[in-house]
Amino acid sequence: MKRVKNAKSRWQLALVILMPSLAMGLAWYFYFFGTQFVPDGRTNKGELLLPPASFQSMMLEKNNEMFDLQGLEGHWGILVFGDESCSDQACQETLYQTRQAHLALGRDSDRVVRLFISSSSNPELNKPLLSEHPDLIWLGSRKESVLNALGKNPGEKREWPTNGFYIVDPLGNIMMKYQPGQYGGDLLKDLRKLLKASNIG
């Protein structure tokens, strides 16, 4: 009888230890791979990327030096993609929309940085634009690195995601995507929810 009680106690102890680990493992799996479990009635305005894309694998450069995850300094990021000079109206409107969303975060705006990604890391191409967006971090990358990171399949049309914008978390997971021309208020709503729920960044 005593042996049965000891065995039962061991099982109970094992369950107490394993349950938190199991819950964390399931949460991790659903976050990265569980596309089939995402409910249709979700309220996010952007498109959730499952699995997330890798910020690191885009091989970004700033002033001809590598810009990696440490460059985020533990912040959330708004990634905007455009051409080398961002001289067209659509690109400038995208920057405007993301800037307004960033400002509207109020005191939480310090937790978020904005990054512009083009095929050139030379911000001198559009000095007037930079004067309107002094907080913008201008980065360059190769097309192949960006498309591979964002999960473009060989059969898909491989085009630079011009005027699209994304959210990247402080761990380097590019986890939400917005279409060119999408309203900055959608970005703002999602960022507010993410920042409220997040213990990082």
Score class of each variant (00 low, 15 high):
109 S>Y: 11
9 S>D: 10
100 Q>M: 14
105 L>T: 00
103 L>T: 14
61 E>M: 15
168 V>A: 10
126 N>W: 02
114 R>F: 01
72 L>E: 11
98 T>N: 00
150 L>P: 01
155 G>M: 09
200 I>C: 11
23 A>N: 00
71 G>Q: 04
80 V>S: 08
89 Q>H: 14
64 N>S: 14
94 T>L: 09
41 G>S: 13
96 Y>A: 15
191 L>D: 04
67 F>T: 01
113 V>K: 15
150 L>C: 06
137 I>P: 09
137 I>E: 12
134 P>S: 08
118 S>V: 08
146 V>Q: 00
120 S>Q: 04
85 S>W: 03
105 L>P: 07
11 W>T: 03
91 C>W: 07
90 A>F: 09
34 G>D: 06
26 L>E: 00
169 D>L: 07
38 V>F: 09
143 K>V: 13
25 G>H: 01
37 F>V: 13
24 M>Y: 08
8 K>T: 06
68 D>W: 11
184 G>Y: 06
81 F>D: 02
132 E>M: 13
24 M>S: 14
135 D>P: 12
108 D>Q: 04
160 W>L: 06
18 L>E: 02
62 K>T: 11
42 R>L: 08
173 N>G: 09
138 W>Y: 13
83 D>G: 13
46 G>Y: 03
6 N>M: 10
161 P>F: 04
105 L>Y: 05
144 E>Y: 07
139 L>F: 04
50 L>K: 12
135 D>L: 09
129 L>G: 05
8 K>F: 12
19 M>T: 13
140 G>Y: 04
108 D>S: 05
134 P>M: 13
12 Q>Y: 06
103 L>G: 08
131 S>W: 06
22 L>Q: 03
166 Y>F: 15
197 A>N: 03
68 D>P: 00
31 Y>Q: 06
196 K>L: 10
73 E>W: 03
73 E>F: 05
197 A>C: 01
121 S>D: 15
171 L>V: 10
104 A>R: 03
109 S>C: 15
138 W>R: 07
140 G>E: 07
95 L>Q: 06
115 L>D: 06
137 I>C: 06
151 G>T: 11
144 E>V: 15
121 S>P: 05
100 Q>N: 10
43 T>I: 11
171 L>P: 01
175 M>L: 15
109 S>A: 15
95 L>V: 05
190 D>M: 00
32 F>S: 08
173 N>T: 02
174 I>Q: 02
185 G>L: 11
146 V>T: 00
